[in-house]
Nucleic acid binder design. Sequence first.
RNA 1: GCCGGGAUGGCGGAAUUGGCAGACGCAAGGGACUUAAAAUCCUUUGAAGGGUAACUUCGUGCGGGUUCGAGUCCCGCUCCCGGCACCA
Length: 967
Amino acid sequence: MDAYDFSAIEARWRDFWSERGFFQTDTSAREGTYYYLNMFPYPSGYLHVGHGRNYIIGDLITRVKIMRGLQVLNPMGWDAFGLPAENAAIENNTHPWTFTQKNIDNAKEQFRIWGVQFDWNRELATCLPDYYKWTQWLFVQLYKAGLAYKKKATVNYCPTCDTVLANEQVVGGVCERCDTPPEPRDLEQWFFKITNYAQRLLDDLSTLEKWPDNVVKMQENWIGRSEGAEVTFVAETGDPITVFTTRPDTLWGATFMVLAPEHPLVDKLATDAQREAIATYRDQAARASEIDRLSTDREKTGVFTGGYAQNPVNGEKVPVWIADYVLMTYGTGAIMAVPAHDERDFAFAIKFGLPIIPVIDRTDGLAKSVVFPGSVDADFAHRLDALHIDYERQPLGDLGEGLFVTMHGEAQIDKYVEVMRENLAPGNWNEIVGARWLFVFNDTVLELDGTASDREILARCKAIYPPVGKNRTVMEMLNGLSFYRNVLFHAEYGTMIHSGEFTGTPGDRAKADVSQWLETKNIGRATINFRLHDWLISRQRYWGAPIPMIHCEKCGQVPVPEDQLPVLLPETEFIGKMGLADIPGYADTTCPECGGPAKRDTDTMDTFVDSSWYYLRYINPQDATRAFARSDVDHWLPVDQYVGGVEHAILHLLYARFITKALYDMGHVGFTEPFARLFTQGMVCHTAYKCPDHGWLYPKEVSSGATTCPKCGKDLDISSFKMSKSKRNVVDPKDIVDHYGADTERLYTMFMGPPDRDIDWTDEGIRGAFRFLNRVWTLIISSLDQLGAVGTKANTAELDESALSLWRRVHRTIKKVSEDIEERFSFNTAVAAIMELFNELSPYTSGGTVDAALLREAIDALVLILSPFTPFVCEELWQRTGHTDSILEQPWPSYEDAALEQDTVEIPVQVNGKLRARITVPAAVAVDAAALKDAALANERIQAELAGKNLIKAIAIPGKMVSLVVK
RNA sequence: GCCGGGAUGGCGGAAUUGGCAGACGCAAGGGACUUAAAAUCCUUUGAAGGGUAACUUCGUGCGGGUUCGAGUCCCGCUCCCGGCACCA
């Protein structure tokens, strides 16, 4: 008998499917179409088994859909522009395209070996002129629609490399190539106005029901909608300073303002005395930005401008500061600081001694007070006991023992104030902090309700106890006692206090009421702000799509006329490091409008632009007259199933959604979302070994089971990481295919675990898959002479019990595998079900009488449902079992409902929640609750269980179980 | 800090709608074949109790709860992973 010779088998079928054109798609089809799409890859140098996961899933689904008789589109292309190619080209002194082309060839060969099929007639590469021509066309459309504009923006400039760095090139705050911290530079940059679509991008997320929840959430967070108000303060200079706040109800507590260091008004507000300090701070903030903003909990820094503004709601004069915790890129670049109800403002105010006035009541009614030793008589504690007020005695530094009082609710606080007023010894004070802000003095009780009382209270305290004079505000003084720390600040919605006519407004209305009032007073208005900002697409690089714009002194910015596209990348020897601006002669052109001399834009586009529309180009990839045909894309899109890595959950998917909506608004497409259903597959990880001295080791270097370095004997750091060259833990598909074949790799990849989860590749696991294929091979080849004629089906009337059981298993498995693949994306359980079928089939073939027709039915079904996983061996087995056509010409098997029904059913019986018996009943009984209950009660085991006890309750769930309650 | 997701045998995982926990695979043990090894085949395998016959108890990160019944639902935690992070 033939052994399972996978390499011969795979060689035989490798080109068969493409030669027969099974994977070529007719996009003029309008019936039964299915668009499957993998995120197209960047053509990097090599593919490892982890990359395979994505494409194997796609190939598997495509094969099933073809067998379903659908017209399937599963294209492949290359996201080929970008920095790695450019860097590699510099290193090898070659053109990026040379490098890219080689990688593309490698990848295509790898796909061929994996048996992963695509419609190669639709291949595209974003770096080729017939693609980027249409990327430029897209840019021009966006420009004409007012969605592309130029403005000054700060970029990272590396002084050593003498070039601009993309954000991704700044790693850990330094240039990835030379470790120099980049300098910020202001340059004119192109942006796409994605913020125009913020609300729609957010709203339409709710229509994406078939997207993973976590991706939807990530996009939601990224868009970052917040509702609030814009409020205008007026500076002493007369300049309006508009701020955005989500808490207009806290306006009365705005005791200072903070502007971003880059805010345009800073120069105007600055007093001469502060000018130098401001300049220094701005400089330092600009330089430090990238590195330091990584740490959120670093101490607040800032500088006073010297200027003041007026709080429009209470007329208070508030100082204006600058600080780098306020970002120029969010809101208006200026904030009103409400230190009593914002953590950051609180920290800033404490550090710089700015007043902190609570204006929102606590919702929990919690208040605290510290009674200093000697400020009351010894009986005071008993009085508190009588009032049921909690306190603890604790030492207060070297002053002696104090009472640390905790109160809940207004009534208790009032009683406490009363008893404190009666008992406070002369020359003392006592404060109540939290739900109330009261200071009991011998002659009066003062409330901390504004900056005036802040000053008065502090002055009185200082007079009584001079050491507190070092504090600049009452809050700073209170902050000195750690007992108070958790009641000094809160960010909850609550009843407004110390807020003029709004005092007493309940928390659930405060925000809306104040917003409305601001509007009538013409001080501000309710507004919505988004975290999302416009998409900076300019790159000062060579290897990207040139921005098709011309700058003419007379006519201004002029788009390149569409009939003159593409603007080609200049052919040049000297590439890399520099951008298009450095290529002599590139920029020189004539103005399309006036014909005079003009300059081309020398920026190229972010590669995310290339990938934001490629799914459209696949429909008409060779159309030289247009980017795509609306009549075709309107039929084929949205993409039925989009699959890719979760690392693209935000940017790529958001940009693609934006571009689709923009194209819709411009009338180029008839749909508003590009991807109907999304699946994000997990990463494949592998054990990596790290020696403290010798760094990362190849798994081969470490003898199996060893935990120490083979070179120095030190303990290795062994853990699992995403496969990467640098960690030396990649598994090369070549090794796997050579040893076990591509089918085994495919099967194991699908069987490893749930496809949306990260998973470890193990060398033991792959052997299990290989063993299984060997068993399948051996069983089928050795059963050939027992096999019924092609096309025969089992006659159930003639089958004995074990045969009937197998017959049912066959159909049950078809059902499960179909659902697991097409509905649940649960390939691991589909494989398990096929293994179970095999585990029943195998003993059947060697167990005496074998029904030839049933065996035919079972083996055909097994081969068909296994074929999307392991197409090579299945195609071979299909032929060996007597078929003359290809599996892909076969319909996906259907199951018979009759086979899903059992004659008898095993039903578990519980007594008091514990499993006590399993009864086997006819199917008719199992579905009848009353009969099922009787059957359970009749059971011997249950009878014994019930003996001497009362049956309280009997629950019978038809088809599922019986549950008895006894006493 | 905020927002997601997760935790089940020695390991990867299964249990789809609240209904027999541990499917399937790996690893490990025992046996067959073999001069031997590999491969293959058979077999045992959640833990505990004199316990590889059919019994009992315990068992899905921890603590409570709802229910006849909870891996699954509710409340409160712990730890791990991912995203965002001074976003006003």
